[in-house]
Design a protein around this nucleic acid. Structure first.
Lengths: 155, 155
DNA sequence: CATTGACCTCAACTTAAGTTGAGATTTTAG
DNA sequence: CTAAAATCTCAACTTAAGTTGAGGTCAATG
């Protein structure tokens, strides 16, 4: 909100950062406690941020949209310049890494999707033998006694 | 563990259910508190489960693997027969529904993946204009004053 | 100089899906 | 019958990513 003040734009209060990123002040405090962003303090103890935290906060926001945990963000922030605005190379490195994560996640979902598609067509003779409902070892192992429940009357 | 006992197999103790499903006793208690499974009590107050809770627990396990929250499980359990083993029709209905969820999730991931792929090739002239780092409204709106930070020297 | 708005810290609360532990009781096996 | 194993309830703790509130201080404005 103090956009209008003529003071040097590279010193931002927490409210400034909140206003420019759309992130709540409490979240910025939290990110700082987590070591994701840094600030210097005024004589009175208030936070002042350098411009480049804006980009860091943007990157945090992207991670959040992508479902990437802050711990992961902290990792990539370790190789980020602490003192200046992260640049294209930095961002490319990060986005490559996160694309990999997304790909892995997508593949896992695809795997589960095709399991469920099988279930919908239900190739299983009975639910007792459905490999989705009875993942791997659930059948066959487990000692003596009736290992499979009497199947429900064919429906 | 009490697999061996010759007592009627359609009355299961909580330990029996835990052993046959691989789910911890504490989790079964929890599922019961959440209304996902039901039990009757012995004179002494211990839980006894009907066989069909085994299938319910299996379904809960599947949901868990798929990242489907218990609240969602509770919803599909509402249309499940309370008194007998859920059958193929039930399971087909559930798996269709959840496949839809997975598909939606996959599509969302695909969308984000392609955003990041763009970022890797970095079509953006500068990070200031990157639509991933600056989702929609971040540019252009927001009143007066310098709305974009001075870009870092082209790197 | 006084007021108001922005800011500070610290603790507690939130959701999800359970786990862990204490202390008491029940059930089962010998 | 007794001892061990299983079970019971209830409360507190866990992780993640913050939010909310109380009580107090700082900074900018009139």
């Amino acid at each position: 909100m103090s956009d209008k003040k003529p003071s040097p734009t590279d010193i931002l209060s927490v409210g400034d950062v909140a206003a420019r990123t759309g992130v709540a002040v409490s979240a910025l405090h939290f990110y700082e406690r987590q070591g994701l962003i840094a600030s210097v303090r005024t004589a009175g103890g208030q936070r002042r941020y350098a411009r480049h935290v804006l980009r860091r906060v943007s990157v945090i926001q992207v991670a959040k949209r992508m479902g990437i945990p802050l711990a992961e963000v902290a990792e990539v922030f370790e190789d980020l310049p602490a003192d200046r605005m992260p640049g294209k190379t930095d961002w490319r490195r990060i986005s490559e890494r996160w694309r990999g994560k997304l790909e892995a996640r997508r593949k896992e979902i695809e795997r589960m999707e095709s399991e469920l598609v099988e279930c919908i067509g239900c190739g299983c003779v009975s639910l007792r033998s459905c490999r989705v409902l009875n993942p791997d070892d659930a059948l066959g192992s487990s000692g003596s006694g009736p290992r499979l429940l009497p199947e429900f009357p064919s429906e």
